[in-house]
Design a protein around this nucleic acid. Structure first.
Lengths: 215, 215
DNA sequence: TAGATTGTTAATCGATTAACAATC
DNA sequence: TAGATTGTTAATCGATTAACAATC
């Protein structure tokens, strides 16, 4: 229906709005103005209003925004009005950590399967979910309506496994491998490059030290 | 010395340059032009040259960039020409996963200590490093020249623990707690909001589905 | 020298902020 | 009605891209 392209910057801020609204909701706050929210979130009120108006007019002049309503609406925008079946590929430390995190389940991301290249892990269960062999992967995606694959495997295997996921009809990949996957446009990739993040921290520390020396 | 402020966008791209240059180095590539690198990285050559020239002229007209030299120089910019002592606070699944990841060590981030609020974990070791009690934290930072703290604890405790870290004189916090820490300006915070990242993936999947329906 | 490719200036594009009329 | 605050247009700011002279 609507065709207006929403900018990457706006999309990147949506989850943060959702998070703050969720907290306000927990605190029992009923309504909030863009101005008050801007102080909490440390962004401009103008940006908040601009961002939200990409998706519709959720507020009311003279009143502000109803917290519960806005929270629900942003939830819908983020696709949280339904569940998403996910699998984790790579049952190493990180894969297991993510598998054990129940917060995702609460948001509707249901862990349906675990996979690992190591055949010795076959049958081991995490939260009752058995680790499967990679050769079952493609069929499993198809038969269990899997939407998202979490990739927690070494980069050496990532491109190859991603190929299998695409063949299986995966819609999105949450990529923790230390590489940028190049895949067809209809497959969404969201990468979490932990090392990159740590290096950015390192840069910021180093450069702030230099500032201190010079002032 | 230099005062020119480097934009956040540029800084955010540095680790990625470093990653690609490292791969080229491994492949034995000696030199590369901004144009060839731009094809590999799927950015414009113009952006690469602009970004790098924030830090100095690393290339040579008619030749391009020497891979090894550029890799080393970006490494220095990122603060990788020296080691950084780190601690992990929160020895849950994620904390343990990060503790077990040896890649960070290779980049010079040395794990010196582990801490957890759960006293029953005291003395348990990971890679030979014992888990300590929180009441040792402040002194440990001071006496062991700890620069970075990795925060893998629930958000309910994050703000409080961050306060202790600041008192101990920490320079940077790699924050995995599901909250935005508000700390003095001289303490660098780099947050990895995994849930936010997953929600962004969810949004992108949902919106691409809508596109498909309408085309 | 001729060709290649940088470093850098200028042009464009997009995102953020400011301002204010609309309206609850 | 008066006050508050949105939704939205306009102004500003910053980041990206294009272009090209400098130079290896």
């Amino acid at each position: 229906m609507e065709d207006r392209e929403i900018s990457r910057a706006v999309i990147g801020r949506l989850p943060r709005y959702y998070r703050y609204l969720g907290e306000l909701l927990d605190e029992g706050v009923e309504r909030i103005s863009s101005s008050d929210l801007s102080k909490k979130m440390r962004v401009t009120a103008s940006q908040i209003r601009q961002d939200l108006n990409n998706f519709g007019g959720f507020g009311q002049q003279g009143y502000g925004y109803n917290v519960k309503y806005l929270y629900t609406e942003i939830g819908k925008i983020l696709g949280l009005d339904r569940t998403h079946n996910i699998i984790i590929i790579g049952a190493g430390n990180l894969g297991q950590a993510l598998a054990n995190y129940v917060g995702f389940e609460k948001s509707g991301f249901i862990l349906k399967g675990l996979f690992d290249v190591n055949p010795r892990l076959e049958g081991v269960t995490i939260r009752g979910i058995p680790i499967r062999r990679m050769d079952e992967l493609k069929a499993f995606i198809r038969h269990n309506d899997i939407e998202i694959a979490v990739l927690t495997i070494p980069k050496s295997k990532a491109e190859e496994v991603a190929g299998v996921l695409v063949e299986g009809g995966i819609q999105g990949i949450w990529n923790f491998a230390h590489t940028d996957l190049v895949l067809p446009d209809n497959v969404i990739v969201e990468s979490v490059h932990l090392s990159d993040s740590l290096l950015e921290l390192s840069y910021n520390i180093s450069s702030s030290e230099k500032d201190t020396e010079n002032n």
